[in-house]
Amino acid sequence: MAEREVTLEDLRKQIGKEGPPVTVEIEKGMIRRFVHAVDDPNPLWRDAEYARKTKYGGIIAPPYLLCAAMILTEPTDPKAPPGFMTPSIPDMKLPQNLKGILDGGGEWEIYKPMKVGDVITARTKLANIYERQGKIGKMYFYVSETNIVNQRNEQVAKATGTLILYA
């Protein structure tokens, strides 16, 4: 069967598509691994005694934990081909002749601190797809929006990410 060319219109039909909600518990060990990786000595993320005396009353996660959007997606398949990251939106239709994917940037809005023991739920949707002509070919921008709530259904944060797909 001769395949018809996938147009921007076809791709844009996916806008609004949502991934399954992903629930993660904010654990002390998770926070410790993050702050060790970043090499951030701030005792608010590390020292329970210190943190107890602050307005937070205990250890909180650094807001940049949100930068690790991958913890808010389903676990990556260990046998996935190199470089492939499980998208949080299943069966996402990609441009034809895909040459590469780059992380274009992100935005994080923080409404409430994430404390040890909080259980957060992230819901991601495809917010926009647009196209630009780059030097080496077409670039498709996939913009995702993730809303994060805690166990009390309070909105904790919103994350926006832009993936650049080269075709």
């Binding site: 990786a37 991958m70 990556t76 190199p82 990251m85």
Partner: peptide, 9 residues
């Protein structure tokens, strides 16, 4: 390991 971004590059 902390973030789950295992892209080999």
């Amino acid at each position: 390991g902390a973030s789950g971004d295992f892209y080999e590059i």
